[in-house]
Nucleic acid binder design. Structure first.
Lengths: 345, 345
DNA sequence: TTCAGATGGGAAAGCGCATTCCCGTTGCCA
DNA sequence: TGGCAACGGGAATGCGCTTTCCCATCTGAA
């Protein structure tokens, strides 16, 4: 990647480096119009493209914003990424992407790489965990982020603060009221559901999952329902699928309909996918609700009850450098939790 | 973003800048182990993170790879992005993201921004077009890319060469045999479908769309079928939806079943979504096939017939700097094009 | 006419690093 | 023991740009 440089432009225009810089790359000092014109012409002729690396070095600000997700092809993260991208556009920055599969060690490396590139800010999405096996990774990630913040970086976290973060300066969290919303969902479901409830959750220690489980149980309790059984599985479609397989026989054997709450939409989709070939129909034989309202749901049948989260906004907010009030969500009851009527058309 | 610098490390370790650089950032010359140890200790103590900008400036190579997509939240692009990301990981690079909504003017700006950041290579996905209104944008995009290539950049294009590119050095195209595969799809569909065919295509001039239309028609012709009517609409879900709405009455009025080929999966999904509330069932009242085999299809009902494309591989290949043979696809016939049997369970 | 104050261009000093060249050491062979 | 090659560390240069400081020129008021 060689290209023509500012000094070449300056020479061709017969001006100094300083003047050329002032003309081309927005300075507070505006050279005279005739000179400016000459410089622009020269730049155009040479096909000059400013070297952002050099600019970043000179001004010590890179115009980069780092985004860390588990998997960019997961609709949940893709929606957030879209929001981040949008915010970046408005701020005239570019997005640096890192997918980590959720391994905190990879996340740590990504943070280091972003820090090396002197990203102005870092957005980190994806559920945090306090599981024992993530302990060390979390600590290292927190240390890396702390260092980054101490050096003046901004960090936006989606959902839940980084475990073990000790510096407050520079962090900001886009809070998602998972617990309240899950409670709200439970309340609405409890109003129309007679039978038992069951929660398909992620591994214990995942904040997002735990919050939603807790909220849902609270909602049930407040509605005078007994607590739901909790099944732990992977926090993704595959986890939901496994849980669905394990559940199929039980549902078929049962008299009353079960109401299943999967702690996120992709898990709910996985459950449904596993149940379908077993002949278990939703909502006839069991009802199910998810969480997130990912865009994919639009074309998923049966229409999935869920809690709508403004994912794009969340991405946008996380990419901003300021604190924000918690985002709000909305319970969406759809066909997957409808009470089936015998005579339904 | 201030952080400790190499010279601070060098000073603390009591060595020269050169030595510190050699120890920390992999050079061909390896300083003595005791010195190296001292330098590493100093770096660790100061929390030294090399400034990638400065490194890039000094070595004139940024380790960046730019990715241009229409919309990162579209499953098609997300899958490609995943592949690119994967390739970047292996090459120890980072991905710079730009979403452009397909506007070639935005794409041009993205290329310029990547060039400014001295990205080592650029991957550009999303259908090219020769429509009149894109004329100027295309020309400018091509010029920008040409310049980038002349300056030593590598460009990987998915699907179809950039219109108007005049430099060959540095370009490489991941060829997708859209026409052949569409022909293959038509052949297989023709084998079992009696009635008429209809194609829901993107705007005229979109290469990907046009290729698939041409291939499909050819396949029909070779199977001795009359050419299919072609409806033009947007190359996305909304376009498919509109087409579906427009088609509903006609399908309901018709005696024989129509076989619809939507030139990509999201359009097929849109068509189906529009048809469903109208009481048109797939495959009972009409059959439908898409193209791409995006991951979303896994959970879409009725299971959509389509042509499987190795999207992740495509991303990976585009991110490599070498020419590759065309990728291969596979026709997948699924429930959406099954011949309904009256007595079907 | 003179001088203070603007105005605007240019020289030069970095930004943080890689790398080339130079030079003092050491090891080995004759 | 002298001489030469190989080795390893350091000074210095430059990557492409921004920005400070300096200086020449011009303006207007005294």
């Amino acid at each position: 990647m060689a290209a023509s440089t500012l000094s070449e432009v300056a020479r061709l225009a017969g001006v100094s480096l300083a003047t050329a810089s002032r003309v081309l790359n927005g300075s507070s000092r505006k050279p005279a119009e005739d000179i400016a014109e000459r410089v622009r012409a020269a730049a155009d002729k040479l096909g000059y493209v400013p070297n952002a690396q050099a600019q970043a070095l000179a001004k010590s600000s890179s115009g980069l914003i780092g985004l860390i997700v588990h998997d960019i092809a997961d609709p949940y993260f893709a929606a957030i990424a879209r929001g981040v991208q949008d915010a970046a556009r408005q701020q005239n920055r570019m997005v640096l992407l890192a997918s980590t599969s959720g391994a905190s060690l990879d996340e740590k490396e990504a943070v280091a790489a972003f820090a090396a590139r002197r990203a102005d800010s870092i957005v980190i999405a994806g559920s945090r965990s306090v599981r024992a096996e993530d302990q060390q990774g979390n600590a290292e990630l927190a240390a890396e982020l702390d260092r980054y913040c101490r050096n003046g970086g901004h960090v936006g976290v989606v959902g839940h603060p980084i475990v073990g973060a000790s510096v407050s300066e520079g962090y900001h969290v886009v809070k998602v009221p998972n617990e309240e919303l899950a409670a709200g969902l439970a309340a609405e479901l409890a109003a129309s559901h007679e039978g038992a409830f069951l929660i398909i959750a992620g591994p214990e220690g995942l904040y997002t999952s735990d919050d939603r489980v807790r909220g849902f149980q609270r909602g049930l309790a407040e509605a005078g329902k007994p607590a739901a059984e909790v099944i732990r599985t992977g926090f993704n479609r595959a986890g939901g699928y496994d849980a669905g397989l394990a559940l199929a026989d039980r549902i078929k054997a049962s008299e009353s309909r079960l109401c299943i709450f999967a702690v996120n939409d992709v898990m709910a989709i996985g459950v449904t996918a596993a149940l379908r070939p077993e002949g278990v129909w939703i909502p006839r034989d069991a009802t199910i609700a998810g969480f997130d309202d990912i865009e994919t749901l639009r074309d998923f049948r049966p229409a999935l009850s869920t809690v709508h989260l403004p994912l794009e906004d969340i991405g946008r907010l996380a990419a901003g450098d300021t604190d924000t009030p918690p985002v709000s969500g909305v319970v969406k009851l759809r066909r997957s939790t409808e009470t089936p009527v015998e005579s339904q058309v």
